[in-house]
């Protein structure tokens, strides 16, 4: 049959505006098919906070029981550990140490994000980089921080620089790999829709690609923070230099053979990790997922 390129005339009269019946059908169907969003923020916040608090209480109770029953000669009472924390607070070493470590981790994490995020984006854009650097980053990621400390110390000298190098090596690969994974999981249809709307190049990245990859981006940063914090503690503990920090408190506790002081430092390390996780990353992740309808409730 012929492929015509003639332009046909109007194939019928103009459509009449649809009547009220169809308007009402439409709005009725809309009402039937959308669920009202029901949520009670304060009650859910309480429900969220209860299990972790119960867990802490259970640990403390078991610990106290273990102490009373004398399960281990080395085990101090929870009160003794609290006392050690109180002592270092009183002699003015606790807060500076805490501040130093957190500050170091923030700087290290910030630098890692500044390197890791663009690196992750590049990994998805440049094939050569992906094939060469991808496996290397994965390999470095699986390396324990403790193995990197001596390398950094010999390479950079026992300095603050060595500590940062260890943090970067711990956090950058994990952020880059996570960001790359987040970007490659963006549905191609969204990118196609963006391109058809004129969102190409940098505009496409800003308006479509990055927001679409945001859930992956946040979890990459979260993992980067965790890796960075762990690497920092390892570095502070192992470097022979007297850098003030929680890792140093740990080292001093070990040197003094004081289990209370060691456990006090461990508690602090744990508390910082949990606090940043639950105060920053978990709410951020929940918000990002919730706004996209990706969480159950």
């Amino acid at each position: 049959m012929p492929a015509t390129d003639t332009v046909p005339a109007d194939g019928g009269g103009p459509p009449e505006p649809p009547g009220d019946a169809s308007t009402e059908m439409t709005s009725g169907l809309d009402a039937l098919e959308s669920q009202p969003p029901g949520r009670d923020a304060s009650r859910r916040a309480l429900a969220k906070a209860t299990p972790p608090l119960l867990a802490v209480a259970a640990v403390l109770v078991l610990w106290q029981l273990a102490f009373w029953l004398g399960w281990s000669a080395e085990l101090p009472a929870p009160g003794a550990v609290a006392g050690a924390l109180g002592d270092s607070l009183a002699d003015g070493t606790l807060l500076p140490a805490l501040g130093q470590s957190v500050l170091r981790c923030l700087i290290g994490f910030g630098a890692s994000a500044a390197i890791g995020v663009p690196l992750g984006v590049l990994l998805t854009r440049v094939t050569v980089l992906r094939t060469v650097l991808g496996p290397i980053l994965s390999a470095v990621q699986s390396l324990p921080a403790a193995a990197l400390v001596p390398v950094a110390v010999i390479g950079l000298g026992p300095s603050e620089g060595a500590v940062y190098a260890v943090v970067l090596l711990g956090a950058v690969p994990s952020i880059a790999v996570g960001v790359a994974a987040g970007i490659s999981q963006v549905p191609p249809l969204l990118l196609r829709a963006g391109r058809s709307m004129g969102a190409t190049g940098p505009r496409g990245a800003v308006h479509v690609l990055l927001p679409a990859a945001l859930p992956g981006l946040v979890s990459a940063l979260r993992q980067g923070w965790t890796f960075g914090w762990r690497a920092l503690m390892t570095a502070e503990l192992i470097t022979a230099t007297p850098l003030p920090g929680i890792g140093r408190m740990l080292a001093e506790g070990t040197a003094a053979e004081s289990m209370s002081r060691v456990l006090a430092a461990v508690t602090l390390i744990l508390a910082v990790g949990v606090l940043v996780e639950s105060a920053l990353f978990t709410p951020l992740e929940r918000r990002v997922l919730h706004s996209r309808g990706l969480t159950g409730r």
Binding site: S196, M197, G198, H207, V208, P211, A212, V288, G293
Partner: peptide, 28 residues
């Protein structure tokens, strides 16, 4: 440039319905 609609709505889930429309306006 023609506008394109797909079988899947392809709306951006990080934006509200109104913001989706506004983004298209902005890009236009």
């Amino acid at each position: 440039r023609p506008a394109l609609m797909f079988q899947d709505h392809a709306l951006f889930p990080w934006l509200s319905a109104g913001r989706n429309v506004e983004l298209a306006l902005r890009l236009a």
